[in-house]
Amino acid sequence: MPETLALKINGQLVEVPSGTSVAAALLIASQPFRLSVIGEPRAALCGMGICFECRAVVNGRAHRRTCQLFCEAGMTVETNL
């Protein structure tokens, strides 16, 4: 079993294997990443830091690319929905 760690996604505790990106954690938690300008739910598209669809608030900072960040124990992620 891989080591796991727990982070908070929209207030919910989510446990993921270490080495999981924040984007993957959001997908595991079935959370849309953000609401678009006209209010549509969106999720990661490119997975490699280009498209910015996976932006979320990480540790209080908005507009972070979650596909480029890896989960850390105690991290908070909010999707501003």
Binding site: P17, G19, S21, A24, R42, A43, A44, C51
Partner: peptide, 29 residues
């Protein structure tokens, strides 16, 4: 990077790039 072409519904969660989905699965999805 991948080229994406827009088509109706391509903004839905669950639609990924090809390299995109591979990258996300490699990152733990």
């Amino acid at each position: 990077r991948e080229r994406f072409l827009p088509f109706p519904g391509w903004t839905l969660p669950g639609v990924f790039g090809v390299g995109g989905l591979q990258a996300l699965t490699r990152a733990g999805y």
